[in-house]
Computed example of a mutant assay.
Amino acid sequence: MEVTGPRPERHIDIYRRAVASLEACLPLGWSVTSDRARSPEAPKRILVTAPDGDSVSYAVITSRGVLSGDVARISADLTESDRGFVCAHYLSDPVRRQLDQHGISYADATGNLTLVAARPAIWVRNRGADADPWRGPGRPSGVLTGEPSERVVRALADHVGDISVPELIKLSGASTGATYRVVEVLAERELIRRIPRGPVTSVQWEPMLRGWSADRKPCATRSFAAPDGLDAVRAQLAERVDPGYAVTGVGATDYAATDVLEVYADDPDEFAAALGLRPVDRAADVVVAIPWTPVVFDRMERREGLRFVAPAHVYADLLAGPFRNADAADHLRSRMEADESWWRRPLGRGL
C-alpha cells in the first residue's frame, strides 16, 4: 500500500485513517459506527455491524506509537469480555504479531489491519507498509535500550516537576543528542508530555517503567551459597563503606520475607570473595547481577545499614528480567501510586 501525505498526529486523525482502512476491507453489507468524540480525541468505542444486524463492540485504543512491550499493558487494561481495536500511525510486524497473540484487533494508517470476532463471525486482514514510511534516517528506533535510555527514564521517574531538556541532560548525565532522542521516543509513545520546544510537563511513570523493563536486555547473573547464612551476609554488607552493591528484587520491598538475597555488583567474584560466598549452580542464597550501566547505583536508598536500588528501578526489575516477580511488582506499584512523595524527589531550579 502506498502511503502519501503527512503522518497523522492527532488521535482523531490516527483513528480516521485506521477506520478508513477497515471500512475499505469490510465485506459488502458490513458497517462501522462509533460514539461521538470531541476533537482532537478519538471515539472510545466502535460498533461493527453485520448485514443481519448482529454487531460487536470494540474499545478503541489510539496511540502514536505502540511497541511490543506495550501490548501486555494494553491487554491487561481490557476487561476479560471486552475486545480491543488499536489504532496507530504505524504498527511494526513484531507488534502486530503480539497483538494477534493477545486477540486484539488493530489498524494503522499504512493499511496494516486485523479485525476478529467470534459473533458475528468476522476475520478481516490486510497488509500495509513493512516499515514506518514517516521515519526518516537518523530518527530514533523507538526502543528504550542502552545507557542513555536508562539514565533518562530513571531521572524522569525519580523526580517530579516540569523539566527542560537541558536540565534533564544535566540531571541524567546522558549526552545531549541521546537525551533528545530518548525524549522523542517517550513523547511518541505518549509516556511523557512535552510542550513543543519546551519542558517535559508530565510523566506517565508506571507505563514508562513497564515499557523500559520490557525493552532492556536482561543482565547476566551468578549464583552463590552463604555458608554462614543470610543474616551474616547482611551484617557484613551493613559494615561495608564502599557502595559496590545494591539490593534489588523482592528483598528490596516489604512484600514478603525472602530466603534469597538479590543484588547488583560490578564484580560478582570480588563481591563473593569479600563475603565468603561460594559459587553454586542451584539452591542459591545470593544471586548477583552484573549491571549493564552504573545507573543501578543512582539515588540508592539506605535502610538498616543496607543499600537498596531506588524504588523505580526495583519496580522495573520485578516486572522483567532475572529478578521478576509479578506479585511483588503489583504490591510495590500500589505503594508507589499511593504516595509518590515517598520515592519521587521534587525538582529544584538549581539543577
Rank of each mutant, 00 (worst) to 15 (best):
D100T: 14
G69N: 04
F297K: 00
A59H: 03
V247K: 08
Q98K: 08
R324W: 05
A37E: 10
D35T: 14
E301K: 08
Q236V: 00
F323W: 10
R139M: 13
G244E: 09
C25E: 14
Y264L: 06
A256N: 10
G84W: 01
R96C: 10
G53M: 07
D82M: 07
I192K: 01
L230N: 00
R240D: 08
L186Q: 02
T79I: 04
Y315G: 05
A214N: 05
V124W: 11
A338F: 07
I192S: 04
P311T: 11
D281F: 13
Q101K: 13
G161M: 03
K170T: 15
L275R: 11
D231Q: 13
G142N: 14
G249C: 02
G111P: 14
A20N: 04
A72W: 01
R154H: 15
D82Q: 13
D228T: 13
M300S: 11
D281A: 15
G321H: 09
L26F: 11
E340P: 09
V182K: 03
Q101I: 00
A50W: 07
T4R: 10
D52G: 09
V309G: 01
D77C: 03
A76F: 03
R73K: 00
T33D: 09
R335L: 13
I192R: 00
A338R: 12
S164Y: 04
E23A: 14
A283R: 15
I104Y: 02
E262F: 08
M300K: 05
V295Y: 05
S202L: 15
D215G: 10
D70G: 01
H11R: 15
A178S: 15
V165W: 06
G84N: 01
V263I: 14
P207H: 02
D267M: 00
V233M: 05
R125S: 14
R194V: 05
A129M: 02
R17L: 15
Y255A: 13
D77A: 13
D77T: 01
V260M: 07
M208Q: 02
R7C: 11
A265G: 06
R344E: 11
R278Q: 15
S68I: 08
G65S: 02
L319Q: 10
R10S: 11
T253P: 07
V48F: 10
H102W: 03
A328H: 03
L26W: 08
V309Y: 01
A283G: 12
R181N: 10
D130I: 12
V56P: 06
N126Q: 10
G249Y: 01
D259A: 12
R125D: 11
A289T: 02
L22W: 06
V287L: 15
A316H: 02
V182F: 06
P148W: 08
V183Q: 06
L186P: 02
S63D: 04
G321I: 08
G177R: 07
D327S: 14
D298M: 13
L67E: 04
L171C: 09
R197N: 15
L115W: 09
T4Y: 05
L347E: 12
V185Q: 14
A338S: 15
V241R: 13
S57H: 02
L332G: 05
G53H: 06
L22V: 11
A329Q: 02
G173S: 08
S31A: 07
E23L: 09
E301D: 13
N126S: 13
P346L: 14
N325T: 01
D269I: 04
P322H: 05
A235N: 09
P51R: 05
N112V: 09
